[in-house]
Design a binder for these strands. Structure first.
Length: 969
DNA sequence: ATGAACAAGCGTACTTTGCCGAGG
DNA sequence: ACCTCGGCTTTGTACGCTTGTTCA
């Protein structure tokens, strides 16, 4: 089963990695764009979406080995320990590492002060100064090694921080022994170091924080991470779902159910009432507790069954197993709380103090990834909590002070833990990744807040326990609390904090909410055929003993700051998105969900599996009914999607999929027809989104193969900007009343309803209808006049001209160079009847042209070879004559040379070209003759050449005995 | 806590129909 | 004389979307 899941993960990951590859392509494309001129309108082909289309072609062979490694690694991890959550984190961390190198430099600047106490800005600035000092000292040390002096002013702050960060990454934070990293510790070196730090602004000066928005690349990375996380969460859901089908677990559960309950459930049609008693019994017998230790989910499930206690995930899974044991159609439902789709949500920005999207990637309520680790923290593991709300910390100064008091003891205790209890306190992979992610953004001062966070976290966890498992036995809770105190700074302080907690219970309850703890994440859906006359999927939360509470889920999740973006039901190794059932305000989550096309494609095969499984019970036997059940549910979800209540705030209408306000329409939009009015919001009429129509200019419609109907007036007239219009001659615009650029520099816009299919004048008598520039604009095939074809070949116009066939140059777009646009032509447009004639002539001409070019190349090659060989011969002759210092009869020699060279030339010229080439191409091995050393010009006779067929060599001999061996190619 | 209004950063769509010199 | 080809200041602007801030 694990193997199967690994295969699934791999296959799913392929599509994800496909997009990762696409991202790399984007980077490459941007690189090349820098060095290559833009290709005019063809640049649209470089658009990511277009590029993505090409990437999606089934060309898996192009996956690089690096990608394969990622896939293999995912698969390996999955197989190795079954912890798909770990896989998820691994995958995400890989991407963060990848993107981190770029982002770190940019973000650190903001993140450094953010980790200091924002309430005390002066202190924060001091810490910043220390961090900078430390960075400079680091650079000095590094530079002293390289024996090159460093000007402290040379390094930019970002460079310094980057260096600092790299160095800090190598430091073992657990030791806590490096005084340089302690913000509160003023190292003497720093005091003595004569460095001046200039502050941009005085402390406390209210300066607007520079806004740095996420770049396109960061957005792409965030989306990739989001997708990867979703895939992993789906795989996890499937894993749990298959564990629920374990016959042993089902049998064991069934054996626990009292007989009177079984009798109640024997009714032919299952109803919610019949379920109530069963759920109550389950809730009384199975409790939520904090998990300890890492193990596979199946083992955990068996353990939970044995002890009647488990994580919410396990308890929910047990309930699903029980329902399936009773032969109900049951699904395991989970909120997939994946990493944010928006890159900024991952930032650890103290200034925002977690107002909105202040959460880390793994600081989700997804227990399968992090909560178990958090839970294990409270049961003795020393895992730094992630994303503890600093707002809470600042609100509880007492706790903070007590934490400071216990800081020393905490540190020493950590050392003890490390040495003595390595088994229980050793960090697992998840926590390491989490720490890498968090500590990247932490400055040395974060040590303090980290310990503060520990305390906060433990308290919140305890609150969560009481909230989610109020029925849990006191003794277990006590055990957990006791064990949790092992990893805390001190038992006494913790007890003291417990008192504070009681006093501030009201405040802490809010804090618990802000920590996203206790959110409903897992439940079951049971098909009750006795409900609604047609049957209905009923929400059953056995953990909290809630039946049919689907409308409560969104509110409960929102209260716990959990994003209800994806609710997925798992059954039969498949999955189905049932978010609509639990989400009343779709517009709020729509922008936080991944591209629906991709999501639907991912879920499509899983949906089929799910449908097959949930309808395959014995109670529903025939296929028609099965299809009906799926159909009815789909209809139910669809209906819910189309019947959303009107939002009460105006801004919600900006991108609402169902409704629109006129005030939020863009420049190129209009309401047509303007009605019906569905309601009002702050005095503004609400219209259906379907009434919003796009407007374009006449030319733009023409590009889409549409033309304006007769006598249509523009529905909207825009004023052209003065700057754009200033280059134009005013008279030209005024003269052309009908142009889209109207008088006075206006742009006339028309709606689609004002257009009709393009009706161009058709070709007659072999004449191509042309525009006023004597050409045809070929934006698409639709723009071709009837009876004409576009022949996009180079030099084809010459053929048409030669054949005296009427043609028009085909303009396919514009190219922008030097700030001006130039038309791009590609071939010609001719009447269809001449197509074959022209193509045949073109093929002939191209063949002739090719042959001529070959001939020209050969002649050129021959000429060059002749030059080369004659220069060799000349050099040889000169060597023979002047090498030994003899120089008799120079005038005769020159004459001879001229004669011989002439002889040679005439001989070559009279030979066929092919022979010349074959003979001349080769490596001449010149063997000087001992008899005629001087005053002799070699003459190679054509009939005196010995040839060796085996070695393809030919020996040219002179009468004097001189020979040249040439190799024939 | 929420929403409205505004500001600011970033991405992207839109813009739009040579000129001249070298060389064949 | 005519034709072909390639190089030439690698645009500049406005709008939409998103996010943050302030105020009610």
């Amino acid at each position: 089963m694990l193997l199967y899941d690994a295969v699934l993960i791999s296959s799913l990951a392929i599509s994800f990695i496909d997009h990762y590859h696409y991202k790399l392509q984007l980077i490459q494309a941007s690189f090349f764009r820098q060095y290559q001129p833009p290709l005019g309108h063809r640049r649209k082909n470089n658009h990511p979406q277009n590029d993505m289309k090409t990437r999606n072609q089934p060309n898996r062979n192009t996956q690089t080995t690096g990608e394969d490694d990622v896939i293999r690694e995912i698969g390996h991890d999955t197989k190795a320990n079954g912890a798909l959550a770990n896989t998820s984190q691994d995958g995400v961390s890989k991407f963060l590492k990848h993107s981190g190198s770029r982002r770190r430099g940019l973000k650190k600047q903001d993140d450094y002060p953010s980790n200091c106490d924002s309430a005390d800005k002066l202190k924060g600035n001091e810490k910043q100064v220390k961090a900078d000092k430390y960075a400079q000292s680091v650079l000095e040390v590094k530079d002293s090694k390289n024996s090159s002096p460093l000007n402290p002013n040379d390094g930019s702050p970002q460079q310094v921080r980057s260096e600092l960060e790299d160095l800090m990454a190598d430091i073992d934070w657990e030791d806590g022994s490096n005084p340089n990293l302690n913000c509160d510790n003023n190292h003497p070196d720093y005091i003595n170091n004569n460095i001046t730090i200039e502050l941009d602004s005085l402390p406390g000066t209210a300066k607007r924080k520079p806004i740095r928005r996420a770049s396109a690349e960061e957005k792409v990375v965030a989306e990739l991470v989001h997708r990867a996380h979703l895939l992993c969460l789906i795989a996890r859901g499937r894993l749990i779902d298959s564990a629920c089908n374990d016959p042993l677990i089902q049998a064991a559960l069934l054996s626990l159910v009292p007989a009177y309950l079984l009798k109640l459930l024997e009714a032919p049609n299952l109803t919610m009432n019949a379920l109530t008693s069963l759920v109550n019994w389950f809730h009384k017998n199975f409790h939520v507790k904090i998990s300890s230790g890492e193990r596979s989910f199946q083992l955990g499930l068996a353990r939970a069954l044995e002890t009647h206690e488990g994580t919410p995930e396990e308890v929910a899974a047990l309930s699903v197993a029980l329902f399936r044991a009773l032969n109900f159609s049951a699904r395991f439902v989970s909120i997939l709380d994946a990493a944010s789709l928006k890159p900024d949500a991952d930032k650890w920005d103290d200034t925002s103090q977690g107002r909105k999207s202040d959460k880390g990637i793994f600081d989700s309520s997804t227990i399968m990834v992090t909560r178990s680790n958090e839970a294990s923290t409270s049961s003795g593991k020393h895992t730094a909590p992630v994303g503890v709300d600093k707002k809470i910390a600042s609100r509880t100064p007492t706790k903070a002070s007590s934490q400071r008091k216990n800081k020393k003891s905490g540190q020493s205790q950590r050392k003890n833990e490390k040495s003595g209890q390595s088994q229980t306190i050793s960090r697992d992979t998840d926590s390491l990744i989490v720490d890498q992610l968090t500590e990247k953004n932490m400055d040395p001062s974060s040590k303090g807040s980290k310990r503060k966070a520990d305390i906060e976290f433990e308290m919140q966890m305890e609150m969560a326990l009481s909230a989610t498992a109020a029925q849990a036995s006191e003794c277990h809770l006590d055990n957990d609390v006791k064990s949790s105190s092992i990893g805390s700074p001190g038992l006494s302080s913790f007890k003291r904090l417990k008192k504070i907690e009681i006093v501030e219970s009201q405040e802490m309850s809010t804090a618990v909410g802000s920590r996203k703890t206790g959110a409903p994440l897992y439940w079951a859906e049971v098909y009750c055929s006795g409900e609604n006359s047609t049957g209905k999927w009923v929400h059953v939360d056995a953990v909290n003993a809630i039946i049919d509470g689907e409308h409560k889920v969104e509110a409960a999740a929102a209260a716990c700051k959990t994003n209800l973006r994806y609710v997925v039901a798992f059954a039969g190794q498949g999955a189905k998105d049932v978010t609509r059932r639990y989400c009343a305000k779709w517009y709020k989550i729509a922008s936080h969900r991944v591209n629906s096309t991709w999501w639907d494609a991912v879920l499509l095969p899983l949906k089929e599996l799910e449908a097959r499984a949930t309808e395959g019970t014995s109670k529903v036997s025939n296929n028609e009914k099965r299809e009906e059940r799926t159909y009815l549910e789909d209809m139910e979800l669809e209906t819910k999607a189309l019947t959303e209540p009107l939002p009460t705030n105006q801004q919600a209408y900006k991108n609402h999929h169902l409704y629109a306000l006129e005030r939020w329409l863009t420049k190129y939009q209009i309401l047509h027809p303007k009605g019906p009015v569905l309601g009002f919001c702050s005095g503004h009429s609400v219209y259906p989104r379907a009434c919003v129509q796009m407007l374009h200019t006449k030319e733009r419609w023409m590009r889409e193969g549409l033309q304006l109907k007769v006598n249509e007036l523009p529905v909207k007239v825009l004023k052209r900007s003065i700057k754009v219009n200033k280059g134009k001659v005013p008279e030209a615009d005024e003269d052309d009343e009908n142009d889209c650029i109207g008088p006075g520099g206006t742009i006339d816009l028309y709606g689609k309803w004002q257009t009709e299919p393009l009706c161009l004048p058709s070709a007659e008598n072999g004449i191509v209808p042309k525009n006023d520039r004597g050409q045809v604009d070929v934006w698409s095939e639709k723009c071709l006049p009837p009876g004409t074809v576009h022949l996009g070949f180079p030099r084809i116009f010459a053929i048409a001209k030669k054949l005296e066939i009427d043609y028009a140059p085909a303009m396919v777009g514009f190219e922008f160079r030097n700030g001006r646009s130039f038309p791009v032509y590609n071939g010609i447009v001719v009447c269809s009847e001449f197509k074959n004639t022209i193509l045949e002539a073109y093929a002939e001409e191209e063949e002739r042209r090719g042959a001529e070019e070959r001939r020209r190349n050969e002649a050129q090659a021959l000429s060059r070879w002749y030059q080369l060989l004659s220069s060799i011969v000349t050099r040889q002759r000169l060597n023979n004559r002047y090498a030994e210092g003899t120089s008799s009869q120079p005038s005769n020699d020159i004459q001879k040379t001229n004669d011989s060279s002439h002889h040679h030339t005439s001989e070559d010229i009279h030979k066929p070209i092919s022979d010349q080439v074959n003979e001349d191409v080769g490596q001449p091995a010149i063997v000087p003759s001992p008899l005629y050393e001087e005053d002799h010009e070699h003459v190679f006779l054509t009939n005196d050449n010995g040839s060796d067929a085996e070695s393809s060599t030919r020996t040219k001999r002179c009468r004097c005995g001189f020979s040249i061996e040439v190799e024939e190619l």
